[in-house]
Amino acid sequence: MTYTAWIILTASLVGLSCGLIGVFLILRKMAMMSDAISHTVLLGIVVAYMITREVSGTAMLIGAILAGLLTAFLVQWLHSLDIQQEASMGIVFTTLFAIGVILISTSVGNVHLDVQHALMGEITFIPWDTMSLPLIGEVPKATALLFAVFIVVLFFILIFYKEWKILSFDPALAAILGIPVLVMHYLFMGLVSITTVASFDAVGAIMVVAMLITPASSAYLWTDKLSFMLILSSLFGVISAVVGYYIAAWIDTSISGSMAFATGLIFLISFIFSPKHGMVAKYLRPPEAH
């Protein structure tokens, strides 16, 4: 495959996974939790590096999952002590992120990890860092990792589809029907964490938030059906990746930045033109009589 094709494929995988996860983040009103986790996975990655002394996919994934779960747990814990949800999120993620930043600059030194990289991603270099897979041949490491994560995310969303639905809509009923609400919450946080860390290399901590929240928010405006919302959201993620790449190539600028910008464009178009909730539709439709 060509250099361009690899970049678009990698970014599309980010769009797919983030699109799926994002839908449930929005519906559970936890959009900002992704912001928190996207920052704290940095700590997980740094600690994983300090223990293993290598930049390896597996160790980083495990570190990220643990950091994500730790974030979710600490936020929940502070909240149970009567601190507002948003405030506890703000306290937890800034503190953990700060520890990550301090560790990078003091203990890790000048390896591949740096704060700039973590925040902005470096999708440009992805096609050159390859590994060899049986049958398929040389594949960029980041792409292989993202593909694996996409499969995991898709798997968990499909097998627990109705559980995610009821947990998002009415967690009290879910609890009474015997669904382990807390276990599922942490499983979901784990999925958010692996999606975030796998997307890290490609788009960075800030852009992954755009990919998680904006396509799902756009999809929410177009449909009244959860399954369609999931499909649309992933589709919007992929479109953002492709459009973003060509915008970047056209005006010669940051690829991940352009992709995040493209998610915003799709949202703007949805916000204005969506047939159900869009501004134009609302303006044209006579007010409903109740």
Binding site: K162, L177, I179
Partner: peptide
């Protein structure tokens, strides 16, 4: 069985009436 207050859930959730009733059978 439990019927929570109507305001306790988000009625903008992308689903229809039949689907919400079916949720009662998930257990």
């Amino acid at each position: 069985g439990y019927v929570p207050q109507r305001g306790s859930v988000d009625w903008d959730f992308p689903t229809n009436a039949l689907d919400v009733v079916t949720m009662g059978l998930y257990g």
